[in-house]
């Protein structure tokens, strides 16, 4: 890996606004995932457009994964799947190879082994997750991911106007109800009310 763990941890803390066990886990998870894919420099031109990550949690680790991989929501290379699981899947879009990396539940209990001098549990985890070997901290799984074509990076493939609110909807997010295109909010109720 072109950058060291320390460098990544610093960058993640700066981006996220502070260091924490979740950040550390996210950095370790991302570094291990990329290593499995043979990615040395994720920010290089070769990988900038050929990496995609599915993150299964919307907490600190997601930010760290973003920093390490260079994948971004706005570039459509980072997908948040809000499963509430400390895991992420890293995909080499060039080959379709995908590896899912999961933080092992057992690692939480091993924190005291790897940072015995630290009494604060939170701090103990943060320090332990820096040094714990991959095989104790993480689980790896080869998986297959087929991203819907309309979720791929690139120009929007469609643009329709909601038949109710009149707002434009891109990339086939509209829902057809009785032959009329509606935005999701109008079709089935949104996260907001007016």
């Amino acid at each position: 890996m072109k950058k060291s763990l320390e460098e990544h941890l610093e960058e993640a803390a700066a981006f996220h606004g502070g260091d924490c066990p979740g950040q550390t886990l996210g950095v370790r998870l991302a570094r291990a995932g990329l290593e499995r894919l043979g990615v040395d420099d994720p920010l290089s031109n070769q990988w900038r457009k050929n990496l995609m990550v599915y993150v299964e949690i919307d907490r600190c680790a997601a930010d760290a994964i973003m920093v390490v991989t260079g994948c971004r929501v706005g570039k459509r290379t980072l997908k948040i799947m809000d499963y509430g699981i400390m895991a992420a899947t890293f995909i080499n879009l060039q080959t379709g190879t995908a590896v899912r990396v999961l933080a092992r539940e057992e690692a939480r209990h091993l924190a005291s082994v790897y940072a015995p001098d630290e009494r604060n549990k939170y701090e103990q985890q943060r320090l332990a997750y820096r040094v714990m070997p991959d095989e104790e901290l993480l689980n790896f799984e080869d998986v297959k991911v087929v991203t819907p074509a309309e979720d791929m990076p690139g120009s929007p493939i469609s643009r329709v106007v909601c038949g109710k609110c009149g707002e434009a909807v891109v990339d086939m997010r509209e829902v057809k109800v009785n032959g009329t295109n509606l935005c999701r909010s109008c079709a089935s109720g949104g996260y907001f009310s007016r």
Binding site: L93, Q94, G96, A149, M152, P153, I157
Partner: peptide, 16 residues
């Protein structure tokens, strides 16, 4: 497999 005119989507479809 149907694909939009999107390079990554077509490539993924071919690989798959």
């Amino acid at each position: 497999t149907k694909c939009p005119d999107n390079l990554l989507a077509i490539r993924q479809a071919v690989l798959e």
